[in-house]
Amino acid sequence: MSPAETLSWPGTYGDEAKARMGFFTDTSICIGCKACEVACKEWNAIPDSPKGFSGKSYDNTLDLGADTWRHVAFVEQRVPADAGGGASLVEAAERGGLAEREGLATYQEGDGVRWLMSSDVCKHCTEAACLEVCPTGALFRTEFGTVVVQEDVCNGCGYCVPACPFGVLDQREGDGRVWKCTLCYDRLKDGKEPACAQACPTSSIQFGEVEELRERAERRLEKLRLAGQDEARLYLADPDDGIGGAGAFFLLLDEPEVYGLPPDPVDTRRDLGSIWAAAGAAALALGAGIAAAALGGRS
């Protein structure tokens, strides 16, 4: 299997398989404008989801769910005066010059506070637990290697909701079915890019072929490291990780949990063998127990 291959893509599609498509979300250039949230809601005709005023920075969306398929997180952090290894004015100016030469845009940083903004989305995992546990087959792998819920099949059993290690899926109130990002399956079929990527004014959300995006992400990481941004890291870009790598992966500037993301997510299917083995052993033990109670001793 090539790194980006999934269980059912491209294998089951044969000649009809398309290149695997995904997102590279480069949070270092996210400005928190929420155009992605709005474009997603508009294009996919998602019901409104008012949650009131959260008091959590500029984030009143709070999480992904049935009615939120893009979510922009706002992290505020205090930066000590000597941040960046005791940078002097000269060093800071030198870093600014390097940023200019390398053509790097960076996040805002001043007054001792730094902002981390990140647009979260369904990860379209290579090993997608939601898809594996779905008993109806409503969740399926498309010809683009993405993971989509078929709204005419889903019966709202809710199994995918706690199976997702990222808390992406949820049941829609008053509807009963689960909904999530489709990576704009309808637009992809027409050769268009997803609404969020098209709306993003800074190219923080980049859409393309997963293999190519991974290379692009590596180059961006290298550039940022050269510019002294050595807390930058790629998240879910590694095919060896607990979900086999994601179709939608990220460049983050702090630990994933700071953005509300799990630092070491694992597809539950990896433990399916031991799960079934234990259930089988317990069934046998129950049989032995009933037999001992019913057949042993005097009836």
């Binding site: 990481l221 807390e231 890291r233 590694d238 702090d254 070491d264």
Partner: peptide, 25 residues
């Protein structure tokens, strides 16, 4: 999950771990 990473037994996540900056949450 964080404990798994610190023990070097991570099964996933961000392999290319960046340096942790001295920020205050």
């Amino acid at each position: 999950q964080r404990e798994r990473i610190e023990r070097g037994e991570a099964r996933g996540g961000s392999r290319q771990v960046g340096r942790r900056r001295a920020v205050q949450d």
